[in-house]
Design a protein around this nucleic acid. Sequence first.
DNA 1: CCTAGCTTGTGAATCAATTCACAAAGTCCT
DNA 2: AGGACTTTGTGAATTGATTCACAAGCTAGG
Lengths: 208, 208
Amino acid sequence: MKRIADSTVRRLSVYLRFLEGSSQRGLPTISSEELAAHGGTTSAQVRKDLSFFGSFGKRGLGYSVPELTSSLRDILGLGRAWKVAIVGAGKIGIALAQYDGFRSRGFHVVAVYDSDERKVGTRWDGMTVRHLSSMAADMAEYEPEIAVLAVPAEAAQEVAMGVVDAGFKAILNFAPTQLHVPPEVSVRSVNLALELEGLSYELSNRSR
Amino acid sequence: MKRIADSTVRRLSVYLRFLEGSSQRGLPTISSEELAAHGGTTSAQVRKDLSFFGSFGKRGLGYSVPELTSSLRDILGLGRAWKVAIVGAGKIGIALAQYDGFRSRGFHVVAVYDSDERKVGTRWDGMTVRHLSSMAADMAEYEPEIAVLAVPAEAAQEVAMGVVDAGFKAILNFAPTQLHVPPEVSVRSVNLALELEGLSYELSNRSR
DNA sequence: CCTAGCTTGTGAATCAATTCACAAAGTCCT
DNA sequence: AGGACTTTGTGAATTGATTCACAAGCTAGG
């Protein structure tokens, strides 16, 4: 199968979210045009995106909402629950551990780690913060698949390597650093400073 | 000036962060090759990115670290402080309001808003949560420029419109929704569900 | 069953971003 | 001062993503 562009996968998520949203209750089908309007793109783009994975619509009618919803969930690998470990029990880490948006979409937080002894043992939402050094040993018990890194920038690369060594194959990185990991490990980064600086750039160059 | 691609601006932020980082102390100059290695790109890309804004290097030598740092800060509009208002005093909103990474990079949180009366009046880090309805009136006093939206998905579009009406020209959106705003308003979105789903997709299609 | 009307799926065309590759301009050593 | 070496800046080539545009397929209504 040909490599699918990142931008395409992101849009599939957007389509899925809209399909699952309440605004869609009742209607049996939806056209690429409607899907595009809500996703901020064009109908041709929607059809092209879907065409990479098969042919889901009926000409003259559009896409069956339940069928397309289920197909997208399948494509995105959401037919199962994923186990997530939060690494870093600072403000952001704790907020993420308690965030309902994760669990409700099938991402279950099964462990929280920190390297600070003062934080180890504290409890949040029925979960006890564990020491980073026990991570590798814990893998067999919890079998987490995705590591969410919420540690200071200085520590991020080192922690990332530990996480890779422990066997994680996917990392969601909140530290404002470019992570270097082996190619078999998937990384997505959420870099708040970078987003704010993007806005700063646009505000400053509004005139163009 | 020709429209600069978003991807280029993001990379400029990455270059700047590395230049400001401690790993760079002492060395007077840096080559596009080194900058590329840390930013996860190629030297040609670095030179092309910079060339959109001028000519900052010396052939045979590279870029002066202090000069390039200052030029990048200038380009990104970081020569000044920006005032930020957090909208939504839930877990994520409060965590963001307390996050040091904002202030240390020149983004000052000057107000926190919520529409829940039970949260209005509570204090966090010396700031009092204010009611959303007072936002428009507060603008003259605080003069915030960037609104950070940390509200539930259902409320996001409506709150975004209120924020636009109040006069904000930039929004950083944490709600998992596609926001529709007038073209003169800049929006960046951080969508955790979408990032996790991207990882889920990659984990599921590892074999390819 | 036929026709008018939609809407998909997809090659071809266009637009955008990245990489190549090399002349030009400098440095550094002797 | 000269020559070997380094590194930039940038057109040209390439690769990638988006948009166009239209034949093919399906629906619905008589």
